[in-house]
Amino acid sequence: MLEVTGVTVRFGGLMAVRDVSLSAPLGTVTGLIGPNGAGKTTLFNVITGLGAPTSGRVSLDGVDITRLAPHKRARLGLSRTFQALQLFGTLTVAENIALAARRKGTAEKPHECAARLLEFLGIGHLADTHAHNVPTGQARLVELGRALATAPKLVLLDEPASGQDPDETEHFKGLLRQIAADGVGVLLVEHDIPLVMGVCSQIHVLDFGQLIARGTPEEIRRDERVIAAYLGTEEVDTTEAAAP
């Protein structure tokens, strides 16, 4: 289980994330949503070690990883994808994935790992394509594959469905369910709310760097603060909000 406790991030005078605590259990998909600029990517950076929190604590399976270098967190089982794609363009898709494959404690060779994941993701035909030639929708899958190659306990996905067409998103939804069924935890930041509502068992809502709600998709759909955060700041008619 990933636990984030009281994390605050300040950039100069700006408080990008304010005292956020959340947890993401393994084997399920946990959603993290919120309007633009709510601090979701900042929080991801803190969790994966690409940014340091001003205060607070991050732990994975009870091990405090707040001060650990990113590659050490990855070796402990934490990996991620990026909103702005970060594929290694000169390398082929298979090489991208093999590069991230875990080498210790497994009999599987990196190229076997890549082949297995490519098949799982349904993009085996792209194996020898250079990553910079892969269109965005499928590049998202390659990044997912690269994250899975590290044999993670938990993957963080930063807007994985943006740039995907509806069919690809549907395929992606299935993949997420399967990954969770294999016992891997998923923490999902996504603007495609139907996707989030469809796959997450718990959803956290961030607004202005603060956690304003958490609950099941059904609870979130009815939460007034969430509706207010998304639709504006005027008062919301509660009877209307309760309607499906």
């Binding site: 590659h71 990855a74 590290t150």
Partner: peptide, 10 residues
């Protein structure tokens, strides 16, 4: 090519 991603690959 992927300075941020490379560390998260371990």
């Amino acid at each position: 090519e992927g300075p941020a991603a490379v560390a998260t690959c371990g």
